[in-house]
Amino acid sequence: MAISKISGCIGCGTCVQSCPTDVLRLDPKSGKAIIKYVEDCQICHLCRMYCPVDAIVITPEKSIPVIVSWG
């Protein structure tokens, strides 16, 4: 399901900024990053690569059906 898990988050917000498609947000309660709009994840892994504590896990499956040109 695209970006699938965040564990060990320190709440620095780098992933929220680094996501081109605005998938992540900081949870106002816990102060930690949450996957808020998973269906918009383009599986580019920038958030994972920018995360200072390597907290983000991404799988290659899209969370919504995928439309392709042919396949």
Partner: peptide, 8 residues
């Protein structure tokens, strides 16, 4: 065609 949406 396998996981076509996975850019990375």
């Amino acid at each position: 065609s396998t996981n076509p949406a996975a850019s990375y």
